Computed example of a mutant assay.
Amino acid sequence: MIDDSEFVALFREHHNAVLRFIERRVSDREAAADLTMDCFEIAWRKRDPRDPFGLPWLYRTARNLIANEYRRRDREGALWAHIEDHVRILSSESSPALVETLVDAMKSLPERDREVLWLTYWEELPASEIAVVLGMSEGAVWTRLNRVRARLRPLLTAATDARTEEVADDRR
């Protein structure tokens, strides 16, 4: 194992270069910063004084992380398309604007909050099973679910009000 000071030197020397490398390939600055830190976390775990690595190794690791990010985005895009289709089927009498509002509201939530909603409403799991999946207490599941619902309620109420006005305008 290399000592901490050698890793700190590696980090200081190459952090900006790796970050710029990733930023040029990933459009989201926050994601690029996260991927950069992931790259150095991997470097920390794999460090070996007999086989030191430098910038080329970090770039190769960053490329792998970027490829994973692209795959994750593709999967997430497919998931959102599936969710939109599912919501449209469930709310066939709703306007496209209302469906779009629901999907946009869901997208605005942090992933951990969306996960609670998906497990509750799409997978139809009880809170006790969601607690096992997410590694938290049942009480924490209920707390998170109630907070997410409270955040969604005003967004959906506003969309419903807009839909009511739209229908009223159409009847005039």
Rank of each mutant, 00 (worst) to 15 (best):
I2R: 15
I2F: 05
L10W: 03
R12Q: 11
H15A: 06
N16S: 07
V18D: 05
L19M: 14
R20E: 14
R20D: 06
F21H: 13
E23S: 12
R24P: 00
D28F: 02
D28S: 09
E30M: 06
A31V: 12
A32V: 01
L35T: 12
M37F: 08
C39T: 15
E41Y: 09
I42Q: 13
K46Y: 00
R47F: 12
R47T: 04
P49F: 06
P52W: 08
G54N: 05
L55R: 07
P56T: 11
L58H: 04
T61G: 10
A62E: 07
R63T: 09
N64D: 14
I66C: 01
E69L: 09
R71P: 01
R71E: 13
D74F: 10
D74N: 10
R75V: 12
E76F: 10
A78T: 00
A78Y: 00
W80R: 09
A81M: 09
D85V: 10
H86M: 04
I89P: 02
I89S: 10
S91C: 11
S91P: 02
S92A: 14
E93S: 14
E93K: 07
E93T: 08
S95G: 02
P96N: 14
A97V: 10
A97E: 15
L98G: 00
V103C: 13
S108M: 10
L109G: 04
E111N: 09
E111R: 15
R112A: 07
R114D: 00
E115C: 08
E115W: 12
E115S: 12
E115Y: 11
E115Q: 14
V116I: 13
V116C: 08
W118M: 11
Y121F: 15
W122D: 03
E123C: 06
L125N: 04
P126R: 04
P126T: 02
P126Y: 01
A127T: 00
A131L: 00
A131G: 01
V132Y: 04
V133D: 05
L134Q: 13
G139H: 03
V141N: 01
V141F: 01
W142V: 08
T143F: 02
T143C: 03
L145M: 05
N146G: 09
R149E: 10
R149P: 00
A150H: 13
L156Y: 03
R163H: 15
E165V: 10
V167E: 13
D169A: 09
